[in-house]
């Protein structure tokens, strides 16, 4: 059910956001938690700088590359694992173990072996997408209607045709949820790589602001990341709702 946002509600939301922000600023001290107008003035300065747009575009580009690489890897692993019962049983424990490791812990290893570059961010984010998505695709393939598989057998479909016509349609509804969550995680990982390892992008901007104790700039970057996060989530939810009208995502 679509919620009609009345102007009065929007006003209340903005007013409460302002009150909560200023209360936090009052409690923590304006030097640590700057007033909203100070942050907005800094944000206005930030968004007119070319360096900001370069780092934003680079972050989105790295996120997109990592996302595509992760989707390809996850699909390949899932198809190899899910279509082979013994393969699934043999890899289940390993997949669960790798998924349990917080991805960021591999960052020191990547920095040591690859260096602190955009490549590091892409590799780590692709790893995150792969292991986030792979379980959704395996589950999706596992839930394929056995009658469809029988029909495919009777029609003597080739391996790739079977994947395209039988498994993909069965998997896509479940995988779309995984895609939406993975996209947000990929963005978060690219930012995390910037904050911890200083790889280029929005994360590095935030790290620089923190190192220089430039709190208005720090909060400006956080607001930008919130907007990008909402935008990525909305983009995937809209695509999902358009593709699968019978099951709306919220």
């Amino acid at each position: 059910m679509a919620v009609k946002r009345k102007p009065i509600l929007l006003f209340c939301t903005l007013l409460i956001s302002f009150i909560l922000w200023e209360a936090a600023s009052f409690l923590a001290g304006a030097a640590y938690f700057p007033h909203i107008w100070v942050v907005l003035a800094d944000l206005a300065q930030l968004v007119i700088s070319v360096a900001f747009w370069n780092s934003l575009i680079l972050t989105l580009l790295l996120t997109s590359i990592a996302f595509v690489v992760g989707v390809v890897c996850a699909s390949t692993i899932a198809i190899m694992v899910a279509l082979n019962r013994s393969g699934e049983l043999a890899t289940r424990g390993v997949l669960n173990f790798v998924r349990s490791i917080p991805s960021v812990v591999f960052l020191p290893l990547l920095v040591a072996s690859v260096g602190s570059s955009a490549k590091t961010a892409v590799l780590l984010a692709a790893f995150v997408v792969t292991f986030k998505l792979v379980t959704y695709i395996i589950r999706g393939i596992g839930e394929t209607d056995p009658r469809l598989l029988d029909v495919a057998k009777v029609m003597n479909l080739s391996f790739f045709t079977k994947i395209w016509l039988v498994y993909l349609p069965s998997t896509i509804a479940l995988a779309s949820t995984g895609l939406r969550l993975s996209a947000s995680r990929a963005f978060g990982t690219v930012v995390a790589t910037g904050i911890i390892a200083g790889t280029p992008g929005l994360g590095l901007g935030l790290l620089t602001a923190e190192t220089n104790a430039n709190n208005p700039r720090l909060f400006s970057y956080v607001l930008v990341m919130g907007v990008v996060g909402v935008w990525i989530y909305r983009l995937f939810t809209t695509i999902e709702n358009q593709l699968f009208r019978w099951r709306r995502s919220v």
Binding site: A28, V191, M225
Partner: peptide, 16 residues
């Protein structure tokens, strides 16, 4: 607030 990557909130909390 949920859409802000959790990792971006850490430096803010550390600043505070």
């Amino acid at each position: 607030i949920r859409s802000i990557p959790a990792v971006a909130k850490v430096p803010v909390i550390m600043a505070l």
